[in-house]
């Protein structure tokens, strides 16, 4: 008879090795059970409350029991009572006992329309006594899916009618599209009119500038001639000028004001130029920025979505460890603000 231990040294002390491994596996399993138990609150002390309802549909054993949105326990048992009513027993974590006071009510609820069903227990008034173990609490019936469907039925009929109307040639959608088309062609026309106006304003400004320059040159020449003339008169008619000295001074003052007025005219012309420049740059800017930003965002979103939804993306995505962010209190264009502020930094 062959002796395996003699042939292969690995089979020596096989019983001990198997024993150690079995003990380790059993210890691991027990540890896991303890960990899961702690996580699922299996070892914390519990107490029970029950309520009576006409129908057991919608309830199941293990269903969560919540208070103010927090899970505080689960449905332990559902049984048919002697008078054909259903008794639902809830197992509540002992530490939440203080919130359940006489005045608390149980209702069945759902997370959203299609979400998980749960039993909601309302908070009892602070002045009332705490509910004792095994005590009964009242049950308040809430609207079920059937009730909602009954309410939704007329809305669905209306939606059907609306869709039918929208699809007809005289319906909202078609008519709106036609109007939008007309409106956008109007806008285009208005844009081209504004562009023309801006060009016209520009050329008018140029002409005005040239005219002012000519006016300046001519005024200068007139002033020089006038000065010469005054000089001649001054030498030839000293006596007359002595008498009319005050009048000549006034004439000089009036003449000196002329370049100041010309300067003011120049400044006004410059202001008009700046304003027309601002108008021409600002009118198409809004539209261009909005179109470009929209295109970039659509492309970016599609790319990111593609990567995220692909299997490789799912594998490579790191585990989520982050603090959830809040949207701003004032709801306006977060993306643009972020982009700009990054750009400005």
């Amino acid at each position: 008879m062959d002796n395996t231990e003699d042939k292969d040294s690995r089979f020596r002390h096989l019983e001990v090795k198997i024993g150690v491994m079995t003990v380790a596996a059993v210890a691991g399993i027990i540890l896991l059970i303890i960990l899961i138990g702690v996580q699922k609150d299996l070892f914390s002390s519990k107490y029970h409350v029950h309520f009576i309802t006409d129908s057991g549909s919608g309830f199941k054993v293990g269903m969560p029991v919540k208070l103010s949105g927090f899970k505080i326990g689960r449905v332990r048992d559902i049984e048919l009572s002697d008078d054909a009513k259903v008794k639902v027993t809830a197992e509540i974590n002992k530490k939440y006992e203080r919130w359940l006071r006489s005045g608390s009510k149980a209702t069945s609820a759902k997370d959203g329309l299609l979400g998980e069903s749960f039993v909601e227990i309302t908070l009892g008034p602070a002045k009332e006594r705490v509910i004792a173990d095994g005590e009964k609490i009242p049950y308040a019936k809430s609207g079920g899916m059937e009730d909602i469907m009954e309410e939704v039925k007329p809305i669905l009929t209306e939606v059907k009618e609306i869709i039918h109307f929208m699809n007809s040639p005289e319906g909202d959608l078609k008519a709106t599209l036609r109007n939008a088309k007309t409106f956008s062609s109007d806008l285009k026309e208005t844009r081209s009119n504004v562009d023309k106006m801006v060009i016209e304003v520009g050329s008018t400004m140029k002409k005005t500038g040239a005219f002012i320059e000519t006016l300046n040159a001519k005024t200068g020449a007139v002033l020089t001639t006038t000065n010469k003339l005054v000089g001649d008169v001054d030498t030839r008619m000293n006596l007359v000028l002595d008498k009319a000295g005050g009048a000549a001074k006034k004439a000089d003052e009036a003449m000196s004001r002329l370049p100041v007025i010309t300067e003011k005219l120049d400044a006004i012309a410059n202001d008009v130029k700046k304003l027309s420049g601002a108008l021409s740059s600002e009118t198409p800017r809004l539209q261009r920025i909005m179109t470009k930003a929209e295109d970039t965002l659509t492309e970016g979103n599609a790319l990111v979505k593609g990567i995220k939804e692909g299997w490789a993306g799912n594998l490579m995505m790191p585990e989520v460890k982050r603090r959830p962010e809040l949207v701003p209190l004032d709801g306006y264009l977060i993306r643009k603000q972020k982009k700009d502020s990054q750009g400005s930094k």
Binding site: M317, V320, P324, E325, G331, R335
Partner: peptide
Amino acid sequence: PFLEKKAAGLEAAGADAYGGG
């Protein structure tokens, strides 16, 4: 973590839609 990741994706999409009005 899968559901947390999914929720984070939905939150990002929600914030994106909020930013776009």
